[in-house]
Every structure is written in structure tokens, then in C-alpha cells.
């Protein structure tokens, strides 16, 4: 009986040890996998997804910025178009010669129309004209430029008055008078000498503004 009892109890003990060992060893594998591989990977995945969310938010902001920049560019184009319309009566210049040929030609035609003659001392000069290049070019604060022209003439006061009036209301050009000197006829006649300095406003290179 003793041998029987000992044998039975020894078998169970060894069996239980084997079961517990199997339980321990068996659970070690999934638990090890869970904490050793899965958890760190899950942490990495969550971090990556958070980063992705942040990047998507940044992308939304960047898209909004892109729209804003597009708006700025469209504003620039629209204002440049309006500027182009506004500058239609501004003259095309020849910066090297400091001349505005078309405006000068228009003023010469106007001078002829209103009987403005050359001053006596210039009548013998070769190529002398009532309207000539002033040799100066000024720049306004925001880049607008104007070219100087001189008008020296002998004329009746009323003729010169009509010339000035018509010059100031020309639709093709914007001409700003700077100074006028009128010397009365020293012989007591009606032919006076007029010396006038005007500036003709030049057309800008609109495409180059702010670039």
C-alpha cells in the first residue's frame, strides 16, 4: 500500500510541476511578444499618427497661406491693370536723350497753331525750335519720372495764354508747368518773350515695378 501511495503521489507531483512549468513557459511567449514587440510598435504607431495629424494641420495652414499669396498676386495684377489705364496719357521717353519725342512734337504743333515764334536771338540758330529738350529728368518718391522741356517763344500774350491752356488740357500727355517768365516787349509793342519750363510725366515700366 505504501508503495502504491508513494507512486501515485510522486506522479501527480511531477505532473503538476510539468503543468505549471508548461503554464509558465507557455505564457512567457505571448507576454514577451506583447510587451517586447507589440507595445513599443504600438507606441511608435501612435507617435507617427500624432505627427501625421500635426502635419495635416500644418498643411491646412500652408494651403491657407498659399491662397493668401495667390490673392496678393491677383491684387498685384489687378492694380497693375488699373495703373496701365491710368498711365495712358503718360509719355514714352527716351532716357538717353532725356527727351519725350511725341510730347515735344505735340507741343511744337500746338506752338505753331498758336503762332508762337522763336525769340529773335535764336532765329539764326540752326535747328532751333520753340520747344526743346531741357536736359533734366526728375524722379518722384515712388518711381514716377518726368522729363524737362523748355519753351522759349515770342508771341502775343493771348496766343501764349491759349497755348498754355490747351497744353494743360491735353488728353494725350500730362504736362506740369514748373516756371514761367514773361518779359514784356521792350519796344512797347505786343510781342512778348515767354520762357517756360515744363515737365512731361513719363510712362513707367509697369512690369518692373516692385520686382
Amino acid at each position: 500500500m505504501a508503495a502504491k501511495g508513494t507512486g501515485s503521489s510522486g506522479d501527480w507531483t511531477a505532473g503538476i510541476v510539468a503543468i505549471v512549468a508548461a503554464l509558465l513557459l507557455g505564457s512567457a511567449l505571448p507576454i514577451g511578444l506583447y510587451f517586447g514587440l507589440y507595445k513599443p510598435k504600438e507606441k511608435q504607431r501612435i507617435e507617427a499618427q500624432n505627427k501625421l495629424e500635426q502635419l495635416k494641420t500644418d498643411m491646412q495652414l500652408m494651403i491657407a497661406r498659399s491662397d493668401r499669396v495667390r490673392g496678393l498676386e491677383e491684387d498685384g495684377v489687378a492694380v497693375a491693370e488699373r495703373l496701365k489705364e491710368l498711365e495712358v496719357p503718360f509719355a514714352v521717353s527716351d532716357p538717353e536723350k532725356m527727351d519725350v519725342p511725341e510730347a515735344r512734337a505735340a507741343l511744337l504743333r500746338l506752338a505753331e497753331k498758336h503762332h508762337l515764334g522763336l525769340r529773335p536771338e535764336r532765329q539764326q540758330q540752326l535747328g532751333a525750335e520753340v520747344v526743346f529738350i531741357g536736359g533734366d529728368r526728375i524722379e518722384f518718391e515712388k518711381g514716377l519720372k518726368a522729363t524737362k522741356l523748355m519753351i522759349e517763344a515770342q508771341a502775343y500774350y493771348h496766343d501764349f495764354g491759349r497755348f498754355v491752356s490747351e497744353m494743360e488740357s491735353l488728353e494725350q500727355f500730362v504736362i506740369i508747368p514748373e516756371s514761367l517768365l514773361c518779359k514784356g516787349d521792350t519796344n512797347g509793342g505786343t510781342d512778348h518773350v515767354f520762357i517756360m519750363v515744363v515737365y512731361v510725366v513719363e510712362r513707367r515700366d509697369i512690369d518692373a515695378i516692385g520686382r
Binding site: 497661406r65 493668401r68 499669396v69 496678393l72 498676386e73 491684387d75 498685384g76 492694380v79 497693375a80 488699373r82 495703373l83 491710368l86 498711365e87 496719357p89 503718360f90 518722384f140 518718391e141 515712388k142 518711381g143 514716377l144 500730362v174 506740369i176 510725366v201 513707367r204 509697369i206 515695378i209 516692385g210 520686382r211
Partner: peptide, 22 residues
């Protein structure tokens, strides 16, 4: 962006100057 801002501001300033001169 800086180029567009500079261009827009410059053409606006130019426009105001032209209007003022005219």
C-alpha cells in the same frame, strides 16, 4: 509671398502717386 507683397504694395503706391500727379 515677399515678392507678391512687394509687387502689390509697389503698384498700389505707384497708382496713388499717378492719381496724385494727374
Amino acid at each position: 509671398e515677399p515678392a507678391a507683397r512687394k509687387r502689390r504694395n509697389s503698384v498700389i503706391e505707384a497708382w496713388y502717386e499717378d492719381v496724385s500727379v494727374r
